[in-house]
Design a protein around this nucleic acid. Sequence first.
RNA 1: GGCGCAUUCGUCUAGCGGCCCAGGACACCGCCCUCUCAAGGCGGAGAUCAGGGGUUCGAAUCCCCUAUGCGCUACCA
Length: 492
Amino acid sequence: MVADNIRVRYAPSPTGLPHIGNIRTALFNWLFARHYGGKFIVRIEDTDRERLVPGAVEGILEGLEWLGIDWDEGPRVGGDYGSYYQSERLPLYREAADKLIGQGDAYRCYCTRERLDQLRVEQGRNKQALGYDRCCRSLTPEQQRALESEGAPSVVRFAMPDSGVTQLHDLIRDDVEWQNELVDDFILIKSDGFPTYHLAVVTDDHLMQISHVLRAEEWLPSAPRHLQLYRALGYTPPQHGHLPMILGPDRAKLSKRHGATSIMEYRDEGYLPDALRNFMVLLGWSLDDKTEVMPLTTMREGFTLERVGKPAAIFDREKLSWMNGVYIRAMDAGALADAMLPYLERDLPPELLPVDRDYLLRIVPLVQERLKLLAESAEMTAYFFAAQPEYDPANLVQRGATQEETLAALNRAAESLATADFTAPVMEELLRADGEALGLTPRRFFGTLRWAVTGRNVSPPLFETMEVLGRERVAPRLQTAIDRLSQVRSGD
RNA sequence: GGCGCAUUCGUCUAGCGGCCCAGGACACCGCCCUCUCAAGGCGGAGAUCAGGGGUUCGAAUCCCCUAUGCGCUACCA
């Protein structure tokens, strides 16, 4: 492929925040451009006045940036083919539509929505193909003048050829063809003067010299329309590649019911952008027969359409979480501490803030291989920050042990630790000896201590945890445990 | 209903005529490691390659039919 001619685009409509499927399309386009040294363009398709969501454009751009997807032309950066907002390109679409009307390839349609609705109902009842019946195509000039003078609102429709076939050589799906007579006369310009997607996308892709259109498979049915538009307008169509869709676990198109819907919710839950990107690239593409976790450079070097698959992929959160854990484990302590900080600030009780970064740096090695989501940070480390973790004293008494034994164990440990060097190896040696002297298995003895020190039944290794906590935190917690357990009536 | 696309372990996938009685990964199960939980190591189970016809010496791979799933069928993209 000729590198410097490659121009691809991501063309979101600002009707909400991008979801996984959406952004995966952006990713593929971006990787394709970067692989061949081409240009990646972002174009905002804001032609639907009613569904416009304020702030959506910012959200979309923020999502791209978060994932490390940069663009060569588009909002914020500009470019030679602007504007990159379709709402600012209206005259261009009007011009194209006028040209088509002049050539007889498009016509004004005065049908009311009521008539259209009724038409659909009838077609449905008669089990006919749904679609516009081309009623206004045969309007005489007189009839049209009459309607215009009445001030009847109108749209512009494309006059599809009523015979022949339209063929597409799709880069991913090979040859697909449609009978022209089965494609209805779709709308080019809406009655509010704005173009529909079809007209705008064809006009802009041509004007912006887009070489490859890579979009989701849901667009495949509109390909014959676009191809006919290119033909009628005298443009050379770009190459097309329809990417596999991404489905939810129920095999349906991704939606809110499937949990996190926008890319930003994944950030909030603590997924790393690198992990999410790595996971997404695997939905419909593979590097080879085994590589799954790979750096960005590898993705970029290996990304070709030849390795993009055809079947739709089901989005599996379990695997995403696993991969997030892989990325977390690969981080160095400083990077992970910095990554955790915002989540701790968000989720820790306010009185425990601010978090001391140096202290956090010492905690990180203990939780790193246990973290799957950054949003678990606070829950997983809270006892490092709290003065005294809360728990039910009954938990101190391990299964099969008595209250007396437990109290004796706690006292003995407190005593040993009172003068001990507070390092993990030293404490381990001391406490193991204590355990033996007390006749307690490590599991029981350390289980009790774990509750006393962390207020939980699971934690990172006890001695390392105590070392990080330090004597000033551990000693009072042991004393608290002793006090509380003494107050519990034996046999309760 | 019409049109289109798709169909390999539960899921993501490798496979582009013989290397495949189908490989990797997630999840699952067992064992090891072990103070708990993870992580890690080892092993296991899991796909008659949707079904049926062809083509071929030979098919998961090519062709046809059927079934199923999904998408589109808006003055939304």
